[in-house]
Design a protein around this nucleic acid. Structure first.
Length: 608
DNA sequence: TTTAGGG
DNA sequence: CCCTAAA
């Protein structure tokens, strides 16, 4: 697949479905990315890995869909994995099977990307082998049965602190502590203060939250994610960590995206609870980007979302032009071809493991929906705010003033597309305000989700496709223009629609096809259709002689196009040329009939 | 604005 | 996908 995903290492990534109960969506599902290292221990994924998965989720809508269906992973048995490109597979395991897809691998080492000094690497080695050296402290087999007594909790803290001191100072200061636990943990009877202490012990930092529920959740999450998943899975049910005997399929090295689900049986406080939680957990993340005085050093310590590869591409473009401007150091790359030479300078966050537990609000079927997410800074939405963001990161990335100017153009453009969203207020970008916060945003979607859960998957897919039409991302380019970004892989249904449209209206009538057949896909322009058709033609012409599906030399398309469709494309292309040739001789409109006939025969003879 | 074609 | 020339 041509996804722009980079996975560090040759291990599998899995999203484990822990069996959410979809009915209770009071709290968002959180996926925590972890990886099982060679020793079968659970290691928090590195930033790179997190980002990789993030990218993956974003780049492959089908995955996104799967993920959304937290409760029942649909059609997991469908294999998206192409040719057994050995290790570069990502598997999303659902309750009903495995969905796997291929990802370009990325070199483990990062020799070519000297960490940007301004980035907070803080001496942390990015290599995952060394990330959590003492992930499994001595307590590995001692079941932490701290049933309810505050003492139990302090005991837990103590143990954690010990393991802390055994670690390197830096490491512990930046990383949560990990404690192994087996068996059940009951935090119910702990006081708020105890919980806070436990929280501190778990995450290595203080919290001011007094919400017991929240504290419990966080703690459990933190603990759970430090568990040894290679042999045990944990599910959280009503504030208890329950051992789940079902073991992970691959005890070998692999990533595990463990979905820690907090059940919502608990009294549901204010709808905005989750948001508050986020704020608490990441006090200086998204929300503060817009505020001016939240503390400069905080901001500098805050992890800056590494510009995506695409960003980097763009930025390096800029860089080549504006010499002197400093950008995120990274190396250009074409993932598809040189799988190994991937290098990233990605600032390591010092927020800790939990920092990745995020959900993103995504639009599904027109309304916001919580989608499991593994990173806190969206890549897709706020292109316009990239600049805003960067302004606060003068050390990391200098921004050529040129780009700043372009920002205006970009905002304007975006606002034209979705005018009624938010009034323009340059100091506080849209995504900052509409993302978290207002309870309506959070609450409403849940009802929607429940509804959606019942819908058929296909339907779900459709709505997903239709949904993001207001997310037409544009990016300022060096010459001042806007460039559309974000690859939108063509789905099979889109391709079919396109073929249909061509059959009906004829190749070349792209605007018509767009208007009639692609009315709902606002992100596909007529040009896109044309391009896609061109590609389809190419593909069909390449593959049809062989007869068999061995896509020689050609990289597999992100969505492998069934031979039936390709042959149909070919068929249509022939007819099209015939039509056009006869069209030149006699300019009568009756030739549409020919098309129609052709289409129907094609329908009969082929797919559809 | 839409198409066609190159990049 | 993007950009642009032509229509």
């Amino acid at each position: 697949m041509e996804a722009v995903v980079d996975i560090v290492g040759n291990e599998d990534i899995r999203v484990e479905d822990c069996g959410t109960s979809p009915q209770k969506i009071a709290d968002p599902v959180v996926y925590q990315l972890v990886r099982v290292d060679g020793d079968g221990r659970l290691v928090p994924a590195t930033d790179d890995e997190v980002m990789a998965v993030e990218d993956l989720l974003e780049d492959d809508k089908s995955i996104g869909r799967i993920i959304q269906q937290t409760g029942q992973t649909p059609e997991c048995s469908t294999s998206y994995g192409h040719e057994s490109c050995s290790s570069n597979k990502v598997q999303f395991k659902g309750s009903e099977g495995l969905l796997q897809l291929e990802v370009p691998e990325v070199g483990d080492e990062k020799p070519n990307a000297p960490p940007d000094p301004s980035m907070d690497y803080a001496g942390i080695d990015v290599k995952h082998e060394e990330r959590i050296p003492s992930l499994v402290p001595n307590a590995s087999d001692g079941s932490v049965h701290q049933s309810g007594s505050p003492e139990g909790c302090s005991k837990l803290s103590g143990g954690l602190d010990e393991s802390k001191t055994s670690n390197s100072a830096i490491e512990t200061s930046l990383k949560p502590d990990f404690s192994l636990l087996k068996g059940d943990i009951c935090l119910d009877n702990l006081s708020v203060k105890d919980l806070q202490e436990t929280f501190k012990a778990t995450f290595g930092r203080e919290t001011s939250v007094k919400d017991k529920q929240w504290l419990k959740r966080r703690i459990i999450m933190g603990l759970t994610n430090s568990c040894d998943f290679s042999s045990t899975s944990f599910v959280i049910i009503d504030d208890k960590v329950v051992k789940k005997e079902e073991t992970c399929k691959s005890a070998d090295s692999g990533y595990l995206v463990n979905c820690v689900v907090t059940s919502a049986t608990e009294n549901h406080e204010s709808p905005s609870t989750f948001h508050d939680q986020q704020n608490e957990l990441h006090p200086n993340v998204e929300d503060n980007y817009g505020s001016k005085d939240a503390g400069a050093e905080q901001r500098s310590a805050k992890r800056v979302r590494k510009p995506t590869k695409r960003y980097i591409e763009e930025l390096s473009e800029e860089e080549s032009r504006d010499s002197g401007a400093k950008f995120v150091s990274s190396v250009g790359h074409r993932v598809h071809d040189q799988p190994c030479a991937k290098v990233y300078a990605r600032p390591l966050q010092n927020i800790g493991l939990d920092g990745r537990c995020f959900t993103r609000k995504d639009s599904l079927g027109g309304s916001g929906v919580q989608v499991p997410y593994v990173s806190r800074i969206r890549r897709s939405r706020p292109r316009e705010n990239l600049i805003t963001l960067m302004k606060f990161q003068p050390s990391g990335m200098g921004m050529p003033t040129k780009l700043e100017n372009n920002n205006f153009a970009s905002s304007k453009l975006l606002h034209n597309e979705s005018d009624n969203k938010v009034s323009k207020s340059s100091s506080s970008p849209r995504w900052i305000r509409d993302h978290p916060g207002d309870s309506n945003d959070i609450c409403k979607p849940y009802a929607k989700i429940i509804q959606l859960e019942k819908e058929v998957k296909q339907k779900n897919m459709e709505s997903y496709e239709n949904s993001s039409d207001d997310e037409v991302m544009t990016v300022p380019t060096s010459n001042g223009g806007m460039r559309r970004k974000h690859h939108r892989p063509w789905t099979l249904s889109e391709v079919v629609k396109l073929v249909e449209g061509v059959a009906k209206y004829g190749a070349g009538r792209w605007s018509e096809i767009k208007r009639l057949a692609f009315a709902s896909y606002s992100y596909r322009t007529s040009v896109d259709l044309k391009d896609k058709w061109r590609n389809l033609l190419r593909a069909s012409i390449v593959e049809s002689p062989t007869g068999n599906g061995i896509n020689s030399s050609r990289k597999q398309a992100s969505v492998p196009i069934p031979a039936a469709i390709l042959s149909r494309v070919r068929e249509l292309a022939d007819i099209q040329t015939q039509v056009s040739s006869s069209f030149s001789s006699s300019k009568l409109a009756g030739h549409m009939d020919v098309n129609k006939t052709a289409f129907e025969t094609g329908t009969r003879s082929g797919f559809l």
